[in-house]
Computed example of a mutant assay.
Amino acid sequence: MSLLVFAFLIGVIAGLRALTAPAVVCWAAALSWLPLEGTPLHFLASPITRWIFTVLAVGELINDKLPKTPSRTAPPSFIVRIITGALSGAALGASQHMLVGGLIAGAIGAVAGTLGGHACRVRLVKATGGKDLPIALLEDAIAIIGGFLIVSHLP
């Protein structure tokens, strides 16, 4: 599979959970699955960056379950997802000298993940009689496991 497909997919993960994608990318860089040395995004391999994104991602997982959390399709949230999808996709692309292509693919994936994830969650919540928490937890698992599957199988 092409690296740009992986960049798109990590963008989809950002659309599901905005901060999970960059946290996963940071861990991939730390585990040497994603070579970022010598690229403009080498800072993602830093322990400080990795832990900041990890703490923020855990906070997002908790915040998503709160009743007053705005929709992911609200402009501020949507924009953050596009930015983190683009950053994460760019990191995957940068590892193989395709930074701009990865950035674009990641941003497009974030749009698809945001809109598709929202539509799926709404339908699944309706199908389960309005129970949001189980669907939110399922979405968390998909984002975390999917993110690690993506970065651990890079071409």
Rank of each mutant, 00 (worst) to 15 (best):
M1P: 11
M1Q: 02
S2D: 14
L3W: 11
L4S: 04
L4T: 10
V5R: 11
V5I: 14
A7T: 13
F8N: 08
L9Q: 09
L9S: 07
L9F: 07
I10D: 04
I10W: 02
I10A: 02
G11V: 09
G11E: 09
I13L: 10
A14F: 01
A14K: 04
A14V: 09
A14W: 05
G15P: 05
G15K: 06
L16Q: 12
L19H: 04
L19P: 04
T20D: 06
V24K: 00
V24G: 03
C26P: 07
C26K: 07
C26G: 08
W27G: 04
W27T: 08
A28C: 11
A30C: 11
L31R: 13
S32G: 07
S32W: 10
L34S: 01
P35K: 10
P35L: 00
E37T: 10
G38K: 05
G38W: 04
T39K: 00
L41Y: 01
F43K: 02
L44A: 01
A45G: 14
A45W: 01
S46K: 07
S46V: 14
S46Q: 05
I48H: 01
R50K: 14
F53D: 09
T54P: 09
V55K: 01
V55E: 04
E60D: 03
L61N: 05
I62S: 02
D64Q: 08
D64A: 07
D64R: 11
L66V: 10
L66Q: 08
K68G: 14
K68D: 15
R72L: 04
R72G: 12
T73C: 02
A74Q: 15
P76K: 05
S77Q: 15
F78Q: 00
F78L: 09
I79R: 05
R81K: 06
R81C: 07
I82W: 03
I82T: 03
I83N: 02
I83F: 12
T84L: 08
S88N: 03
G89M: 01
G89F: 05
A91P: 03
A91W: 00
A91V: 06
A91R: 00
L92P: 04
G93Y: 08
G93C: 06
M98E: 14
L99T: 12
G101M: 03
G101F: 11
G101V: 01
G102F: 09
L103H: 04
L103T: 08
L103Y: 11
I104G: 02
I104M: 08
A105Y: 10
G106Q: 11
I108W: 03
A110T: 02
A110P: 03
A112W: 02
G113P: 06
L115C: 08
G117P: 01
H118F: 15
C120V: 15
R121Y: 00
V122K: 14
L124C: 11
L124S: 13
V125T: 13
K126F: 09
G129Y: 11
K131T: 10
K131Y: 11
D132K: 10
L133S: 15
L133E: 15
I135A: 03
I135G: 06
E139W: 05
E139Y: 04
D140A: 02
A141R: 08
I142Q: 09
I142Y: 05
I142V: 15
A143L: 11
I144G: 09
I145L: 14
G146Q: 05
L149C: 13
I150W: 03
I150C: 06
V151M: 06
S152W: 14
S152V: 13
H153D: 10
